[in-house]
Simulated scan of single mutants.
Amino acid sequence: MMPQRLIKPLRRSLWLGAAAAGLLAACGFQPRREPELLFHSLALTGFAPNSPLASELRRQLARTPVQVVEDANKAELVLEALLDTRDKVSVVSTSAGQVREWQLRVKLDYLLRTTSGDLLLPRTELRMSRDLNYTETMALAKEQEEAQLYRSMNSDVVNQLLRRLAAVRLPG
């Protein structure tokens, strides 16, 4: 049996938790859900070979009922990548020419069409950039940080893309 001095704080904690849950439910708060896509198959074309963006998009689409099809003629919709690049630009350097800050960028230009050629989304640009401070003494750590930042940007771009695909209404 639990002592009386422990029951009172436990009861208070339960009441506070229930009140907080009730307030959150009353204000309409809901955690973000996966976008609901209104089509069944999608072909990805125009992506760079071994594109990290295409890989991330395939990975995210695997969590939905949408099937990624290799043949564009057999898909309901075609996502055509017009530009799929990532680059790294020096932003700050010392007088000796040593880079102190990089800007990492991911660029995706795409359009969405049906297999018959009807344009559902015109050319759309998605841009993502992150700044990376750099020192030669921590080169390996900065290399790992750069890879992590690129993964994060890819994920953000794909999430934006999926939200835009969820807003697409099929003709007919």
Rank of each mutant, 00 (worst) to 15 (best):
N50H: 08
T137G: 10
L44R: 01
A19I: 07
E143T: 14
R63H: 15
N159F: 02
L6R: 08
F39I: 05
V68I: 13
G17P: 12
S116W: 00
Q98L: 11
L121Q: 00
Y110N: 04
L79Q: 03
A25F: 15
V157F: 01
F29G: 13
D156P: 06
A147W: 03
R58L: 12
Q60T: 14
V66C: 12
L37P: 14
E36W: 12
R130M: 07
L165Q: 03
R86I: 11
T64V: 14
S116T: 09
P9T: 06
W15V: 09
L10M: 05
D84R: 02
G28W: 07
P9V: 04
K74T: 15
F29N: 15
Q67L: 07
T137F: 05
R123C: 11
E146S: 14
A25E: 15
V78C: 04
E36S: 14
F47Q: 05
P35T: 09
A48I: 06
L38V: 14
P9W: 00
P9L: 01
A43H: 01
R163G: 02
R130L: 08
G28D: 12
A96D: 14
L132G: 14
L10K: 00
A25M: 15
T45R: 02
V91F: 01
R58A: 12
L132S: 12
S95C: 11
R163E: 04
V92M: 03
V91K: 01
N73P: 10
E76L: 02
L57G: 05
S51Q: 01
W15K: 01
A48V: 08
V68D: 12
T114A: 02
L112W: 01
L57Y: 00
L38G: 14
L61V: 15
L61Y: 14
D71G: 05
Y134W: 08
F39G: 04
V158Y: 01
G17T: 11
T85I: 13
S93R: 06
A54E: 05
S93F: 06
L77K: 00
P65Y: 06
S93Y: 06
E80C: 05
G97M: 09
L44Y: 05
V99I: 11
N159R: 01
E56F: 00
T94K: 09
P65L: 07
Q60H: 13
R86A: 13
D84C: 07
P3I: 13
F39A: 06
G97V: 12
V106G: 10
V68L: 11
T114G: 06
A25L: 13
N133V: 11
F47R: 00
G17H: 08
V68W: 06
T64A: 15
A21M: 10
A166M: 02
